[in-house]
């Protein structure tokens, strides 16, 4: 069996047996969005205007919520040292961790999003584009989050610090994702925005596993 599938099956098994974590992320996502109609008033046009942005920001925060757990368990019980010392490339371990994180947070967020589109009165013609931005954007959250999670291992108040470090770097993703919806509404087409998001995803995919692996080696040294 290949190293990838050995790692992947272990991660999925661990995630499945702690599936409450995933539901908590979804719960946070929904509640954070639901607060807005109370905060800014339930006027449908207003909600439709701010809906995509609110949903994206909530998704960002929800993804951050589970980010610090990415390596924490392995760091605390000594598994991380052994993963660093295993004959398998650490970059591969990182990729598997990121993939599992995305499957247990990013994917559920995408699946929940349509429900929130309805509740926030988001216009039907931008649903597809917004879902596409989530598909392209949430993996970037997991990838960049992995860098932050690795850097803050063993730090005091690691979770808060992680958000402080990673959220500013995610601003471009937010801008272009929400911009895609606006572009469709203004009749410009979202192709440019989606291409940029795709570019960010490819860039993150190429660089972050390497940076994260380096940060993990430092964390156990």
């Amino acid at each position: 069996m290949s190293a990838f599938s050995v790692l992947f099956r272990r991660e999925m098994r661990l995630a499945m047996r702690q599936s409450a974590d995933s539901f908590m992320v979804i719960g946070f996502f929904v509640i954070a969005v639901v607060l807005f109609p109370f905060g800014v008033g339930p006027e449908p046009n207003m909600l439709a205007r701010i809906g995509p942005g609110v949903i994206w920001v909530a998704a960002l925060l929800a993804a951050m919520l589970s980010m610090d757990r990415m390596f924490m368990g392995d760091y605390e019980d000594g598994s991380l040292e052994l993963l660093v010392l295993s004959p398998v490339a650490l970059e591969l371990v990182v990729c598997v961790k990121v993939l599992t994180h995305w499957l247990t947070t990013g994917l559920p967020l995408i699946l929940t999003a349509p429900l929130l589109f309805v509740m926030m009165n988001v216009p039907g013609e931008i649903w597809l584009v917004l879902l596409l931005t989530l598909v392209l954007g949430t993996p970037v959250l997991s990838l960049l989050g992995s860098v932050g999670a690795a850097l803050t291992l063993g730090a005091r108040r690691g979770g808060v610090l992680l958000s402080l470090l990673v959220l500013p770097l995610l601003i471009p993703v937010l801008i272009f994702a929400v911009g895609a919806g606006d572009a469709v509404l203004f009749g410009n087409g979202a192709k440019a925005n989606l291409m940029l998001l795709g570019g960010m995803l490819l860039g993150a995919l190429a660089l972050t596993p390497w940076v994260t692996a380096h940060a993990l080696r430092e964390a156990v040294a």
């Binding site: 050995v6 272990r10 661990l14 047996r17 598994s79 004959p87 398998v88």
Partner: peptide
Amino acid sequence: GHADAVKPALSVLENVTFWSKL
């Protein structure tokens, strides 16, 4: 090392076979 790297959510055999396969 000092830390046992044993995952409480996995069975004993699952714990051991993961590392041996790796």
